[in-house]
Design a protein around this nucleic acid. Structure first.
Lengths: 232, 232
DNA sequence: ATTATCTATAGATCTATAGATAATGC
DNA sequence: ATTATCTATAGATCTATAGATAATGC
């Protein structure tokens, strides 16, 4: 049991229970979202979450609002994972590559969470969290420092984020495919697109990667005590 | 009025009227799909199509089936447009670039149809029609002939189709952006990614493009006589 | 005679709340 | 005393069909 020294630790037991109910609803919503079943009745969602239907309306005004929160939660989680594993990377090319390579592996490691993101494709590009803002930051830094020769940041971001998203689709569609190898090839291609030499791109994408660890971060993002996971 | 010498010309008047009803339902479904309003009640859809609700069940078994047909219709239209304008292009790099550049312009030229595709993102990659199969064909040809040095076709397709899709999002999100210029830059970047030299990529994307004409093809794809459009 | 359309609506389904119950906080 | 939960359900909404109407095909 990782007892994370998490952000807002919800002082009272009542608060913790409320947060658990909310987290259970969000988890249930994610499982339906991952299947694209967005017209699932509220009652069915609350049953999957194992809470009374009345509790739903204590937390959310509508199903859309719940689904929105469920997507945001995954985006925040992915963002937290990427930040956790890319601190103190100075070279923008390596920073970009690391985020991209980790995201590719995330699709296989956390298929349900990945599918939540893929089913909300239209939110990815403009989101303030998740992969897109980090890709933008790294590409901008690479352009500013002259590391990248492709200077249209908007276009570069669109290509990279689109590729990351569709890469997820490919990884889900072909369960036998080697996700790491496929992802690294895509990363390499994108680095070349950005203007990194073929040799260097290959070297960057062959370098070791920090271990993708999502489980420990869930609680932190949920702002829910670790025992929330036991219910699953 | 272009009286296209279209495929199945539906001999009797009765057949033509039936096809019109179906086309009206599909057009209405597209306008809701473009807004992402997939839980719109059947009655509201039939009202938008200006047909009785009973007619819906003459043509489709469920709303999902209608939406599926509506998406397929757009994919077929885009596919027909691309084929129309890329016949007798021999160089795979030029063929790829032409399809990609035309698709980019399609987003601005036919925003509603484009949005139908973007809201069905998860269908794009695996579709048997639309951009994806053409991109795959051209990239495969380029790899086979040695025109492209990037040899992982699956990965290349994922990057290109993802970029084309998210490019559409960008073009819709920023109405003042020059769609042609933005698209050509993305195409150029992807050609470099595939292994075409920077100079050549630039030359290909600066070369003239056939005029994108979608209106004339709608009827053909609808398999509906030209007067079907008058009702709009 | 056949076929596609239309309107009206029965019955199914879903949403959102009222009111009861149980637990916590002070 | 307050707060979050629960169950039961009124009322709203939606689906899908029955049966009537109108037009075409032969």
């Amino acid at each position: 049991m990782t007892q994370a020294p998490t952000s807002s630790p919800e002082p009272t037991r009542s608060h913790r229970r409320k947060a658990q109910t909310r987290a259970a609803l969000i988890r249930a919503a994610q499982s339906f979202l991952a299947q694209g079943r967005t017209n699932t009745p509220v009652l069915e969602i609350t049953q999957a979450a194992d809470v009374g239907i009345g509790s739903f309306y204590n937390h959310f005004e509508s199903k859309d609002q719940l689904f929105e929160a469920a997507v945001e939660h995954v985006m925040d989680l992915l963002g937290a994972v990427l930040d956790e594993l890319t601190t103190d990377v100075d070279d923008p090319a390596v920073a970009f590559a690391t985020s991209f390579r980790l995201t590719g592996r995330f699709h296989r490691r956390e298929p349900q969470l990945s599918k939540v993101i893929l089913h909300a494709t239209l939110d990815i590009l403009g989101a303030q969290t998740g992969l897109a803002p980090r890709v933008r930051r790294d590409i901008q830094a690479g352009v500013d420092s002259g590391r990248f020769t492709m200077t249209d940041v908007d276009v570069a971001v669109v290509c990279a984020v689109g590729a990351a998203t569709f890469l997820g689709q490919l990884i889900h569609a072909e369960p036998d495919r080697d996700d790491a190898e496929t992802t690294d090839r895509a990363t390499e291609a994108l680095l070349r697109m950005l203007g990194v030499s073929a040799n260097e791109a290959r070297a960057i994408c062959s370098s070791p990667l920090p271990e993708l660890q999502t489980a420990g971060l869930r609680g932190a993002v949920d702002e829910v005590a670790a025992n929330g996971d036991a219910a699953r």
